[in-house]
Amino acid sequence: MGSGTKPARSLAAQERRFALALFVPALLVLLLTTTVPLVYLGWTSLQKLDMSMPWLSGFAGLGNYAKMGGDPRFWNSLVLTGVYTGTTVVLQVIIGLSLALLVLQIPKGQGLLRVAAILPIVLAPVVVGLFWRTLVLAPDFGLVDLVTRTVGLGSHNWLGDPQLALISVIAIHTWQWTPFAFLVLLATLATLPPDVYEAARLDRAGAWQRFWHITLPLIRPAIVMVVILRMMTALSAFAAIFAATGGGPGSATEILNLYAYRTSFTELNLGYGASLAMVLLSITMAISYLMFRLRRARS
């Protein structure tokens, strides 16, 4: 570094050059690995590209997008995406927050709970899906059926019945990712200043009032952040559902992400799959934009 005899080079310019030398390699990698493919995706979504009928390939304009309007499977996947994302995120935050508030009151054993909570997070979603499909939800011998049979509710086809299957995949997702909300909110709660609560006590605020007027506003940024991250995960959830139900039965658990995948790689209609992926991309971007706007407006 530092060549002493070139006084014309200003400090700021030197810092800028160093910064760019550090940042540009990563920037190029990101451009190459994410943005260029994205442009290619957009281009593909305008093509008729069906591997099972390669002789029909060609430019389709907005044909793929127009086709969605009359595609009931698309609308079904859109509704399922909303239900899946909404339900799992709300469940994760409510369960995670309640549990964190409870655990905070326990003087001992918090560490043990943290270890337990790490477990689902580190597991591969595909393994989680397989686990639930076999050991937990399988008819007759799965853990859930063992319980329902014992208490006299009988055996159910948890992944075979369309309604139950949707509930099941929501339960799987919630099981795996609630620990994330729990751990983040527990850590946030632990950083809250105790003197605020002491002051509130002196002001004769009850437990519920303290939660509503002090805790909740203080942890709102963390909750918003958890909601954003959990929505992103839910929107692109794949492996667990794919392993547990494969999107079925029929298309009962086929969220948009799965529909785009199955269209592209099961039915090999890559053009239409690409346009479905573009829709999912727009939804993801729109939601993250809205959430960040919301977050900034609050702070």
């Binding site: 800028r16 920037l27 990101l30 493919p37 290619y40 593909t44 794949f238 690409a274």
Partner: peptide, 28 residues
């Protein structure tokens, strides 16, 4: 460090993180 378009490049990195994998796998 200070360098031109720093905020924008930070946002760019954040945005690339939001891409759904299914959108990337088709072009790849």
């Amino acid at each position: 460090l200070k360098y031109p378009a720093k905020r924008a490049s930070g946002f760019y990195v954040l945005a690339t993180q939001m891409l759904p994998p299914v959108g990337l796998i088709i072009p790849y």
